[in-house]
């Protein structure tokens, strides 16, 4: 008699992996974008301090990417 073992993966595990990927990858993407903007903002600020406000805002704009990732992660859950 042949017995067949079936391994079923827990769907909640897959969900957790998906959510992790969504946050992790978007985090990397935001970091890459912010790296250049941040250093450019520092450069401009070194010459003209009044650019601090603008520099700060521009630096956090790519943050939206990781927020979308977070939202997707929460939706998956």
């Amino acid at each position: 008699m042949v017995t067949e073992t079936i391994t079923a993966m827990d769907p909640s595990g897959l969900k957790a992996i998906g959510a992790g990927l969504a946050v992790g990858l978007t985090g990397i993407a935001s970091a890459l974008a912010e790296k250049d903007i941040g250093s450019a903002a520092i450069g401009a600020m070194a010459e003209n301090e009044s650019l601090f406000g603008k520099g700060l805002i521009l630096t956090v704009i790519p943050e939206t990417i990781v927020i979308f990732g977070l939202v997707v992660a929460l939706l998956i859950k």
């Binding site: 250093s39 450019a40 450069g43």
Partner: peptide, 16 residues
């Protein structure tokens, strides 16, 4: 190479 930093700083210098 820190292109982003240098070019932004140079542009700020150019504004002067």
């Amino acid at each position: 190479a820190n292109y982003a930093y240098t070019t932004a700083r140079v542009r700020a210098m150019k504004s002067k």
